[in-house]
């Protein structure tokens, strides 16, 4: 998934494409209307004129798409990360996190050292234990 800003920019580009698509659709399929009362109603047998109902329906669809896209963009704008913090606050936070990370790394190394010591201890114990068993076996055999 891309970050929010890129998503926003993609959405914006999509909206531009919708604009183009809508203009294109109207251009290809529109009917003729006189611009004032005096003008007569024009017609052109060569033009591809879509039935008025169909045209309205499609325009409706195109606008709905645009409105949905706008809402999507609005929602994305609202979800931009860290709107309510200033750059200084961010830098402070990064600084403190960095310190915490360093400390945590130290803690981890300490824990690993502790584990190693314990491992060594257990190893010694098992060694002593097996040696002890062997010794006692030898004792019982010689007895």
């Amino acid at each position: 998934m891309t970050d929010r800003l890129t998503q926003l920019q993609i959405c914006l580009d999509q909206m531009m494409e919708q604009f183009c698509g809508a203009v294109n659709y109207i251009d290809k399929n529109h009917g003729f209307e006189p611009s004032n009362e005096a003008e007569e109603h024009m017609s052109d047998p060569q033009a591809h004129i879509v039935d008025e109902k169909e045209f309205d329906k499609n325009i409706d669809e195109l606008t709905t798409d645009m409105i949905l896209k706008t809402r999507q963009i609005m929602a994305l704008i609202d979800s931009l990360p860290g709107v309510d913090v200033s750059a200084q606050e961010q830098l402070h936070r990064i600084d403190s996190l960095q310190k915490q990370l360093i400390k945590m790394e130290k803690d981890k190394i300490d824990a690993i050292k502790r584990k190693d010591r314990l491992l060594e201890k257990v190893r010694d114990l098992t060694k002593n234990f097996t040696v002890g068993i062997n010794d006692s076996k030898a004792e019982t055999n010689s007895a």
Binding site: L5, G82, Q90, I94
Partner: peptide
């Protein structure tokens, strides 16, 4: 807005790492 977002992402990354390390240490 991008620099702002980058800082925000960095913070999130740090937090994740911190949490991961904390869990590891705890486990050990």
């Amino acid at each position: 807005y991008r620099p702002h977002q980058s800082r925000e992402s960095l913070i999130m990354l740090f937090e994740e790492q911190l949490e991961h390390k904390r869990k590891e240490t705890e486990h050990i």
